[in-house]
Nucleic acid binder design. Structure first.
Lengths: 171, 171
DNA sequence: CAAAGATCTATGAAAAAGAATATTTTTATG
DNA sequence: CATAAAAATATTCTTTTTCATAGATCTTTG
């Protein structure tokens, strides 16, 4: 057996690549860049994120995301709003237009996920998700404990959200 | 819970990103681009691959890989050799120089993988790998049944090695 | 409280990736 | 067998990403 075939990082990378591949093809047909999808999906529930937080979540470098947000803002898909307490930060929120673009993509994504999940047994799928979540929790940078303020009054967007609990970070 | 937090493709992508992240930082310190590592690791056991096969395995587009191979060939890390039966194809093989660069990276990669595996229970880790392998097998393009000829006689390279790392690093 | 350091986003130049297509060789077809 | 279609790699041109750093604001501390 070749080295990479048993190497966890490679298995993860390849599985990720293949799993996302099908949906990315779908995005491509619709003319939606992958980054745009990822940003919109992350902002789906209406809670805005700062550029840094968002970059971390969409797995991009901060300058890359800044420029992507520039483009998306120009297209009216998201907008920047200032953060009350801290004028260095900027929060990125989805707009109604962004939501309109996102909606059918979300539906397609759910369909696609179902196809993927059909490949493995249901309990196995559950365990897979849990294990991945554990890896993520153990490796993701700790949210700096001040990230859970609640004050972003929605302007043009309706939404409710649910800032959730502090991360485990045991290990 | 946010949409993406339960969405398998995202869990895979983020876990992959975080898991590889630590090692990529190590590569960066050593001045080795990620693509170079991936190509060398894929060629580690000496078997050469055509550009297309290699691109599929290292998760790059073919033109991207062609250009990476150009650079690596210029650096003497790999070399192209023609394929006997088909003059369209080119096989990319690791060189002694490439192997020399790879060796310590492999050791570091094994160390890193051990750290990661320590996060989850051993049986869980095994199941994780198996599940990922199953997804990959189900989604990867079928090898066209003619890919398994054996004739790559090594020219300038010594073969067979086994740099395995000791290093505890349990946690 | 002023200065130094840290944090956050943006920017600019350089490198890499991507899309489309050219080129060469192989395979299939009438 | 000639020609059309397919396949594999390379190339060109454009867009995106990356690296390094600037600019601005916040935090710490002597």
């Amino acid at each position: 057996m070749r080295f990479v075939d048993g190497y966890l990082p490679y298995l993860l990378a390849r599985a990720s690549h293949l799993v996302s591949g099908g949906f990315h093809a779908e995005l491509h047909r619709r003319g939606v860049p992958v980054g745009v999808w990822r940003v919109l999906a992350t902002l789906a529930d209406g809670e805005p994120f700062t550029v840094g937080e968002l970059a971390e979540r969409v797995l991009m470098k901060q300058p890359t995301l800044t420029k992507l947000v520039d483009r998306m803002e120009a297209d009216g898909l998201v907008r920047r709003r200032e953060v009350p307490g801290d004028r260095r930060k900027v929060r990125v929120a989805i707009t109604a237009r962004g939501r309109a673009l996102l909606e059918p993509l979300l539906a397609a994504a759910r369909r696609h996920e179902r196809e993927i999940l059909a490949i493995v047994a249901p309990e196995e799928a559950e365990l897979l998700k849990r294990t991945l979540a554990r890896l993520i929790a153990a490796l993701a940078p700790a949210p700096s404990a001040g990230e859970m303020e609640e004050d972003h009054a929605e302007g043009d967007d309706a939404r409710g959200k649910q800032a959730d609990a502090a991360e485990g970070l045991a290990q």
